[in-house]
Nucleic acid binder design. Sequence first.
DNA 1: ATTAGCACTCCTCTGGGGAGAGTGCTAACA
DNA 2: TGTTAGCACTCTCCCCAGAGGAGTGCTAAT
Lengths: 339, 339
Amino acid sequence: MELDQRKRQILYAIIHDYIQTAEPVGSRAIARRHGLGVSPATIRNEMSDLEELGFLEQPHTSAGRIPSDRAYRLYVDALPKKASLTAREVELVKRMLASRMRSSEQIVQQLAKLLSALTNQTSIVLGPSEYQARLRQVQLVGLGRGQALLVGVTDGGFLINRMVEIPPDIDERSLQRLQLWLNQRLGGVPLEQIRSVDMRALQDELSSGISLFESVMDEFIGALRSREAERVYLGGATNILSQPEFKDVDKVRAILELLEEDALIWDVVMQGQGNKISVSIGSENQLTAMQNCSLITAEYHLGGGLVGRLGILGPTRMEYDRVLSLVQHICQTLNEMFG
Amino acid sequence: MELDQRKRQILYAIIHDYIQTAEPVGSRAIARRHGLGVSPATIRNEMSDLEELGFLEQPHTSAGRIPSDRAYRLYVDALPKKASLTAREVELVKRMLASRMRSSEQIVQQLAKLLSALTNQTSIVLGPSEYQARLRQVQLVGLGRGQALLVGVTDGGFLINRMVEIPPDIDERSLQRLQLWLNQRLGGVPLEQIRSVDMRALQDELSSGISLFESVMDEFIGALRSREAERVYLGGATNILSQPEFKDVDKVRAILELLEEDALIWDVVMQGQGNKISVSIGSENQLTAMQNCSLITAEYHLGGGLVGRLGILGPTRMEYDRVLSLVQHICQTLNEMFG
DNA sequence: ATTAGCACTCCTCTGGGGAGAGTGCTAACA
DNA sequence: TGTTAGCACTCTCCCCAGAGGAGTGCTAAT
């Protein structure tokens, strides 16, 4: 089912106007604002067709039309691939990302702020996962009362920390020996591989403290496996309140409650996969709370094997061209900085 | 200006009813629900007096009365000091705090959840400050490109991490020497004192790499001084949306935008000082966005010198007795667990 | 000092009517 | 055959008036 040139023009005009005004768009308005050289009556006929094709919807008989999710999908898929940003935006991205960062956590926080500030939407940044990173150094700090803090640093400068239980009567020297040994054996090993390291072989190497070793290793591997270290960072969650479609408190609540569920958010953002920017429009989203929203996600790289995903959440009526350009540009800039 | 017995009873009755219903309370309702043995007319007279004294307000002529901030203040100051909790609540606190925690960060997150779940309000937990904690171990990890990660662990198991700049041409051994030396010299020293450690004397001890030492130490002390590590954790921010006084999106936005300003929140919560629970009611708050809210804050201790503050933010119409009891009980429980 | 009674005020809810926006249809036109 | 002008129709939104209700303040009686 292809749309002819004019239908497409009209559809785009409606999408464009609706994105700006959040009001149903009438035939007169289209004829006036976008000089297509045809009368409102003609546009009405076309609109009627477009509605039948499922690209437009009518809130009620005597209102204008609003684009359907399907229309947005058509529009997004047809967007030009190359970014269209103002010089000011490019400048802003450059400046904010160039400011000296202290740790990858801060980069990620900054990223969330940048994204929400530039898009006026809610941004979601998933802390980078370290699976592709190499372990650089391990530190084991006894804290007394049978507890120790296990801290790993990846070559990207990312921290993994985890409280582990150890026998309460272990002495400082054994801990140090274990730490030294862990460093020798695991330093430089990609985290992903640590999981599959042959435990038995390692145990044999270590002459004493087998049980200690076991428990610590289990904990450590658990830390690598678990998502606990993988944080969800939000930026500008209140931006959503400015959108006219969320002037009803109940709708706001549904979304904000969702945003508090880190695990859910993680899953949703992770659904978009791979290197390409992923766009999920309205009813394409699984979660009912997000059926009025669109989610744009993309992969970002911080160098040293640190990979994460970031996303923009907003109403389906979103400035897709701007947001997509921005996301693409930011990811690219990050790549250049850390590549 | 003292209130006689009956005025006080009536005032408390109004506060009680208003907290429950969020509707202005009329004289009839008081006479019916709280058998004070007097007629609505008498209560009306007393209410009129109470209004003149500034304890009640009238939204409009023919509505009931609502308590003023001053009334809440009177009420809160007169609350019994000892906690009144249901067995279920005590049980819940116990269970949630008893579950094995992995790090102080997780404790704090859990704490925020617990507070918001039990109070149905928004909870704020400031990550514990380490000033009173002792430094246990320091780790310096070179990352190449002139950067290194400096990680400190306190005896309470809290992490301080900071990216520091180092000369790009420094070799691994010098770093290790510096790390070893930092550990010997600073291990066991309270963080607070590290700031005032005599730099000059230390520099003399270290035979080489003076400039390296200087820059690293500066950074490290900067990390201790700065608030960057001191995080604000929120729990149940959406609870505020359920309150009838926030059914207007604009009011919600004012509060939620405030809650996104970590630095502001930090300051506000920190204003309550010392060991006693602090209550700040309505107009007693400095920030205009909080003039319809009350903030209850208290100090908590995680042992090992880790001290932080936690708070509950809700409408002035808050169940002060329950919330205060809860906060008090939770702080006490934490003390017992980590003391 | 307390209370019953009553007039009065003010909010809120409801329904009707007019204005406005936009459509769909029909008939005329190029 | 596609396009357009005209027009009746529909539906929402807003305003307004009036009824209903809740609660007060005052007065006079107890």
